[in-house]
Design a protein around this nucleic acid. Structure first.
Lengths: 289, 289
DNA sequence: TGCAAATATATCATTTTACGCAACATGGGG
DNA sequence: CCCCATGTTGCGTAAAATGATATATTTGCA
């Protein structure tokens, strides 16, 4: 079945005359005759009774006439609706980031993006940013906000948002602690609240390894916000990007410790697969940054 | 648009893999690729985002996926319904005859035909049988019950039902009249109820012409039943097939006159166009007679 | 960084299909 | 009985689809 044959049939069923119909359809009478014949064969029923003098619809022909009229009209309007929707970008974009990131960076960007592309639905997942890049690599998310890893896989595009220093935090009651002057032995005693994974955890592991010490890990948690929360309750000290602290409702319950070990800064930005940038939707988002 | 392309697209949109899809569809990968590309061009929108490693549906592709699934399914079920209906004859057959004929001959024939072919709708028009043959010739009716004309047009098929003599009738109060013995002058006085047209009228015209007399036409009516009615009211004498009288509720109100002029008998039967007999519906009816 | 594998697409020769022209068949009307 | 109208079929050509191969590009891995 193709729409052309149906158009021919419809035209023919209206004026019941092969000659006139073939002119109206801009084909030869023979082509029309064959097209109708083929339609009849493909359906397995006779659509028209014809002799050399007259053409008339069979019952099945009348059924097809009604059906084809509807079908063609609906197909046309569907096609139009597709074209209308094509003028603006439509689809879905999924973003994975921490709660902090969604508060601090994302709000303005998303509201602007939403205004520019109202047809794109934004699916926002928040959680521990540590597995964000893995999720992007696995194709589970289009975009994540994450710290730039030491060696960025070639398949990833990274656009920095800001650089935030890592700070050691402790609860206000522990403010007297002076880790800087602490010995390795003392470090081994200090209870730590650590991420389960991610670059900060890697840095800390490295640093402890450098001073040949095994950290006393009080708790492993997922998400920077959880670290702040645990620290504020006095369970230990933790390391988070300063920007997390700035956006935390608990920032008055913890304090930044001074004279702490130097850790690399947290290079935070958007991250997506290079190949996904070919998608107009992702490209639109990326180019707006 | 043709269903083949839509099938390809549907299969592809399900497994999002050109290679596997081409195998499932029993075509080469290149043919599949071209078919999809062509579909996209005909719609004017991109349906799939593809790179060398992955294929994914665009928003428009998802819309088409849903639409095409419905369309193909509906088309299939429509096709099936056509085929189901094709096993029995379906359509319409129009019959034109007098009220008398519908009472006397038609009832049994139609009830049998209806039982044999419940899919055929019977459209019955009753009226003066005189124009019946003209209506058939003009294509307004499929079949008529009419008197066989003197010379049957070659395009007509005729199947006799019965032969009924023409009888002169008068009202009971006029029973004393003796037209047989009447002179031409007296015939010119007798009020006649005549059909407007038709073979009986032709016969009477001929007979009056033969005796060189102009009839005194009291009323021209359409339909044999109307003649009986007028005659029963005493407006004049009329000529009708005896079978009309036999079926008339007024048969006790009129009497058959004796010793009337000899007129040819009324040769009544079914009549249709020869070429219409090629139509399975008409043929089914005809062969049942 | 380079190589191998995977995959969609471009190219081209071949096959299939569609098309138009002309001839044919058939039935109606003068 | 001839002529016209009309749908259908044969046939040669043109167009389109197809499949095999080559190509480009990217990914994954060493």
């Amino acid at each position: 079945m193709d729409t052309r044959s149906l158009h021919f049939f419809l035209q023919l069923s209206d004026n019941l005359h092969f000659g006139r119909t073939s002119e109206l359809c801009h084909i030869s009478p023979s082509a029309l005759s064959r097209s109708i014949k083929q339609l009849e064969e493909s359906l397995g029923v006779q659509l028209l009774e014809r002799d050399n003098r007259s053409v008339r619809l069979t019952h099945q022909g009348q059924l097809l006439q009604n059906y084809a009229r509807d079908l063609l009209q609906q197909w046309d309007s569907f096609r139009e609706s597709l074209l209308e929707g094509a003028h603006e970008l439509q689809g879905e974009i999924s973003i994975y980031c921490s709660v902090t990131a969604s508060y601090s960076f994302l709000h303005d960007i998303l509201s602007l993006f939403r205004r520019e592309h109202p047809g794109i639905e934004i699916v926002l997942h928040t959680g521990d940013p540590a597995p964000g890049i893995a999720r992007v690599l696995a194709g589970k998310e289009d975009i994540t906000i994450a710290a730039r890893p030491e060696k960025l896989p070639q398949s990833l595009a990274f656009r920095r948002i800001t650089v935030s220093p890592l700070v050691f935090i402790s609860s206000l009651s522990d403010i007297s602690q002076q880790p800087c002057s602490a010995t390795s032995k003392e470090w081994a005693e200090i209870p730590m609240i650590m991420s389960e994974e991610g670059p900060i955890r890697d840095h800390l592991n490295q640093w402890f390894s450098d001073i040949d010490t095994t950290p006393n890990i009080y708790a492993q948690v997922a998400g920077h916000e959880a670290i702040v929360s645990m620290v504020s309750l006095g369970f230990g000290i933790g390391v988070v990007p300063k920007i997390v602290l700035d956006n935390s409702p608990l920032k008055d319950k913890v304090s930044i410790m001074s004279n702490t070990p130097k850790l690399p800064s947290y290079d935070v930005g958007f991250c997506t697969l290079n190949k996904r940038l070919k998608s107009p939707i992702i490209k639109a988002f990326w180019s707006q940054l």
